[in-house]
Design a protein around this nucleic acid. Structure first.
Length: 597
RNA sequence: GGUCCCGUAGCUCAGCUGGAUAGAGCACCUGCCUUCUAAGCAGGAUGUCGUUGGUUCGAGUCCAACCGGGAUCGCCA
């Protein structure tokens, strides 16, 4: 369990209190301190209810005895009050100002190196259509988790698996060859992924027309769907692809190339990168030997000529790993790819798959299989499962054209940031290019924060109006606070006589100052939690809490206008740490912050 | 049908291994800019925490059943 610097002092003292006052051994792990609720006096609270058996006394008496002991033993405990079983401790201002000094010297959200290497897989698109809103949640989530792991001291390898082969891309290729008349991204001025996606849609349309015609001529729907000439042709093309037919391969490479150009443009705009790309056209052959090995070892078994795994002892089902004809299924290649990755990256300590929760079962089975094959690292595989994104109108359906395109969405939110910015017009001296870059930064912040602040595990509703909101609990609100502080710091430097911000402990902390300090103080614990739970939302929400408290402070307490030099220096120091910590927290979310806005 | 996830204010969401009178934002209302950036601050109103039982000193949180929503269970990917 993560201990902050305050708990590190309090916990041993509480343990001593139990040995000296009650002659009992207290298990430190069972002790939890919580922030004191605002309606009571105090900074941290110890709930003594769980320890009444140890103390052998009533709640009030137990709490009072411990409180008195802490006052004697720890200078940082200034006074206390007891309400029922709650021991509320007031921590001395000197502790908080000392904390601020430490935070000035060392970034609160940078942990020492763990020496561990972690691989995060995310994005993983198909190459037959452009990226959409669902991909955005995946991409922002995977990127943020990578950053969080880095901040927590790990080396992170970011990868994607590109699903570049299969019937879906053959459909686009076929449609392009039939109807495309040589159209290219250049000739049409269309982004490559959009162009290929258009032919995928064109295929679907023509195919359904064929199916309807066949049904009209008397076939059942099922038969029609299987016998439509276009589908047969696409399947032929897939066979030619697998046989390495030069012409099909050339077309495949050309059209995938267009898609990659389009994806790369989107990734660049979103600000994400990959250290390595895996392509299914290469990985789909993996895993067969591993499955045969498993068969030899008796981990799997043969039935009807196919190879199976029996997961009924784990409460799951039986599952085919190699078809009767010896070809592999999706699971087979995932087995092989996982093994290959741990070979390619010796010392890899964890592998995280950012994949939607509709594949929960798949990953459960995959991890069990790898464990059965005897790989020690199988326990370090993690499915970062996230919920679907729904629209107010319901589920996104490509057939019904309700899919929200990623590029369009970014355009929209950036344009909202622009009109807001123009309206407020606070950017004197900015060039057109600087303004455009700023609006881009703000728009992306709105979108990223909107998708990241919700617990990733949960299905979420995407409200287009709320996602471009720039006020309240949003990314731009946090950026705004940062820009505000930067402005303050710039002005402070202009004032003569100030030799930079410094923390002093010569004045009694105001409630607004202390509130900000307490929230900052809690930040490392939040990062730790975000890392262990692989959950950016907790970090996103805490960043909001901090800047909200800072804004209250800012609005109520003078900084530069303060005449007392010590107080002014202290408040500047506080502001500076809020800014740098906020910037780091936003970095962990993949969101940039501006110097002005 | 089996397995898994979800149900908290009008809407969208927080609520850490059980702890004090369940919190934010949006929307609605009232104040605050001759400016340390009003993309802000202060204040107002809003709850059978899906239902019913159980465990506990204490349950939004744990357990069971039920109701409602979703996912998944293929020699598909």
């Amino acid at each position: 369990m993560f201990q902050d610097r305050l708990q590190a002092q309090l916990l041993p003292a509480v343990e001593r209190a139990f040995t000296e006052l009650f002659q009992q051994q207290l298990d430190g792990r069972s002790v939890s301190f919580q922030a004191t609720r605002p309606e009571f006096e105090g900074d941290v609270t110890l709930n003594v209810f769980p320890f009444l058996k140890l103390s052998g006394k009533g709640p009030e008496q137990t709490a009072t005895l411990i409180g008195e002991f802490l006052i004697r033993e720890l200078p940082i405990v200034q006074r206390f009050n007891v309400i029922k079983g709650f021991l509320n401790l007031v921590i001395a201002d000197a502790y908080w100002t000392g904390f601020l000094k430490a935070a000035q010297a060392h970034d609160l959200l940078v942990f020492p190196s763990t020496g561990k290497k972690v691989m995060v897989e995310y994005a993983s698109p198909n190459t037959n259509k452009p990226l959409h809103l669902g991909h955005l949640r995946n991409i922002f989530l995977g990127w943020s988790v990578s950053r969080i792991l880095e901040a927590a001291g790990n080396e992170v390898i970011k990868v994607q698996v590109v699903n570049d082969r299969g019937i879906h891309i053959c459909k686009s290729m076929l449609a392009w060859r039939k109807f495309g008349q040589g159209e290219t991204p250049e000739s049409s001025g269309m982004k490559g992924d959009k162009l290929v996606g258009r032919y995928y849609v064109a295929f679907d349309k023509a195919y359904r027309a064929e199916v309807e015609g066949l049904v009209a001529s008397g076939l059942s729907k099922d038969e029609a769907e299987k016998q439509a000439p276009l589908l047969l042709e696409a399947q032929d093309m897939l066979r030619l692809w697998e046989a390495g037919d030069p012409e099909v391969r050339a077309l495949w490479e050309k059209m995938n190339g267009w898609v990659y150009d389009g994806f790369n443009a989107t990734y660049a705009r979103l600000g994400v990168t990959f250290d390595k790309n895996y392509y299914e056209s290469q990985t789909y052959v993996l895993g067969k030997n591993d499955v045969r090995e498993g068969l030899k070892k008796g981990v799997f078994y043969e039935k009807d000529g196919a190879v199976w795994v029996d997961n009924t002892p784990e409460g799951l089902d039986e599952k085919v790993l190699l078809r009767r004809d010896g070809t592999s299924v999706y699971m087979t290649q995932d087995i092989g790819t996982a093994i290959k990755r741990f070979e390619e990256y010796p010392g890899l300590s964890k592998l995280i798959y950012t994949v939607g929760n509709e594949q929960d079962y798949h990953f459960k089975v995959l991890f069990i299989i790898l464990r059965k094959l005897g790989f020690a690292w199988a326990s370090e595989l993690f499915h970062l499962s996230y919920g679907m994104v729904d629209l107010p109108s319901g589920k996104m359906k490509s057939r019904e054209g309700t899919v929200v395109d990623a590029d369009d969405l970014v355009d929209e939110v950036v344009s909202e940031a622009r009109s807001m910015g123009e309206e407020l017009s606070k950017l004197d001296g900015f060039s057109a290019g600087e303004k455009a870059a700023l609006y881009e930064m703000i728009g992306l912040a709105a979108l990223k924060y909107y998708l990241l602040k919700v617990d990733a595990k949960k299905r979420m509703l995407f409200d287009p109006a709320a996602s471009i909101d720039l006020q309240g609990h949003t990314g731009p609100f946090i950026q705004y606070t940062y820009a505000r502080i930067q402005s303050l710091l710039r002005k402070a430097e202009l004032l003569s006589g100030d030799h930079g911000p410094g923390a002093t402990d010569t004045h009694a902390l105001l409630p607004e100052e202390k509130q900000v300090l307490k929230l900052l103080h809690h930040f490392p614990a939040v990062l730790h939690e975000a890392e262990t739970r692989l959950d950016p939302s907790s970090l996103a929400n805490h960043a909001y809490e901090v800047v909200k408290a800072y804004n209250s402070f800012y609005q109520a307490i003078p900084v530069l206008k303060e005449e007392d030099a010590d107080k002014r220096a202290f408040r500047l120091a506080l502001s500076k740490v809020v800014a740098s910590t906020t910037r780091r927290a936003m970095w962990c979310l993949g969101i940039d912050v501006p110097e002005r806005m």
